[in-house]
């Protein structure tokens, strides 16, 4: 490993130029194309996009995992000074459990249905922290109590099917934070839950991440949750990050027409009611037929001739805010003023 390539200490995880492809009957599907991203310790990053945007593939890749038949065609994933993609399976397993943990959308499928919660939560504590069985059990009870589960001892003895969706998600979160990971990945962790339960889970993630200083990567399609939870947002479209920056800046002055369209298309439960929702016509292109230029060109209200032939690079618009768009690179002055005003 080249020492000069190692991350500065405050960066928890970093991706450089990552590309992931999946073979399909119609040729390779380019799920992630040339994505670079970093998350600092204690930071909460939301990765936003619709289905097929690559947000889930990217979040798995942060753990060095490529699902199914996918292949990483380029790039690096740096975690704690190691390129995960260069590690052997055993090294990868060790790095993953201790430094990076994951909470999925459906806790029902990520818990083993035939093993008690106790066995599932104690095993990683013993393996990664080297605790005795009794100490691990003690720690598990404490963790479950911290997640707000009403009866930790009973939960510990239960099997997954005996718990509600909200309770299972709390158990998953307890397991995920058990080893004090550097990075916590949460892929749509509340999508399967009711809204009042979702509010509890988001509060829990916020509290645990602040207390432990973990970096949280929160994958979602819900702009409301981004506004509530995240410090920074990365918007993905057709496998690329099209815009990223501080949540306050991106919501106040989105620079990519896709981000603008998304934000304008969502109704809210308060505030002024629009006469008509702004809609983005059409749908994203298939990942097997990505155009040479910007993938959003066919749906873009501001498209220029060069947009269909040439891929725009991410360029800085405000400190820390970047967007990949030819059309707005030169006409974002009013939006800038709106922010600084």
């Amino acid at each position: 490993m080249d020492a000069s390539q190692q991350m500065s200490p405050e960066i928890a995880v970093e991706v450089r130029g990552l590309s992931v492809e999946f073979p399909t009957a119609n040729g390779p599907a380019r799920a992630v194309t040339d994505v670079s991203l970093s998350v600092a310790r204690g930071e909460r990053l939301a990765i936003v996009g619709e289905s097929g945007s690559g947000k889930s593939v990217l979040s798995l890749a942060l753990m060095g995992i490529v699902g199914g038949s996918g292949t990483i065609t380029g790039g690096e994933v740096w975690l704690q000074g190691q390129d995960l993609l260069a590690l052997r399976p055993e090294q990868l397993r060790r790095a993953r459990g201790r430094d990076i943990a994951m909470v999925f959308q459906d806790p029902g499928t990520s818990l083993n249905p035939v093993i008690s919660i106790e066995a599932q939560i104690v095993a990683p504590l013993r393996r990664h922290l080297g605790l005795s069985r009794a100490a691990a059990r003690e720690r598990a009870l404490q963790l479950l109590a911290e997640t707000g589960l009403p009866d930790p001892a009973r939960t510990l003895a239960a099997f997954p099917h005996q718990l509600s969706g909200g309770m299972r998600q709390r158990v998953m979160i307890a397991m995920a934070v058990a080893c004090e990971p550097t990075v916590l990945l949460a892929d749509e962790p509340t999508t399967a839950l009711d809204v009042t339960i979702q509010a509890q889970i988001v509060d829990l993630l916020s509290r645990l991440s602040s207390e432990r200083g973990s970096a949280v990567v929160f994958v979602t399609h819900d702009m409301g949750l981004v506004a509530r939870f995240a410090d920074r947002i990365a918007v993905m479209y057709a496998g690329r990050i099209v815009e990223s920056g501080p949540v306050l800046d991106v919501f106040a002055a989105p620079q990519h027409p896709y981000t603008r369209g998304l934000l304008a298309s969502i109704p809210a439960v308060d505030g002024p009611l629009p006469d008509r929702l702004t809609q983005i016509d059409g749908s994203p292109p298939p990942l097997t037929e990505l155009p040479a230029g910007c993938a959003f060109v066919d749906r873009c209200p501001s498209a220029l001739p060069q947009c269909s032939s040439s891929q725009p690079a991410l360029t800085e618009r405000r400190p820390g805010q970047v967007a990949a768009c030819w059309a707005t690179a030169t006409i974002d002055v009013s939006h800038r003023e709106a922010v600084s005003a």
């Binding site: 707000g148 339960i197 509010a199 509890q200 509060d203 702009m223 506004a227 509530r228 934000l263 505030g271």
Partner: peptide, 27 residues
């Protein structure tokens, strides 16, 4: 009231100012 408070609004400025009523317990 609780249901409406639980729904996040897609605006970080308003979201930070909203009153939060977090219901405890499951359905």
């Amino acid at each position: 009231q609780a249901l409406l408070a639980a729904v996040p609004v897609p605006d970080p400025v308003r979201e930070a100012q909203r009153e939060r009523v977090v219901l405890s317990g499951d359905l």
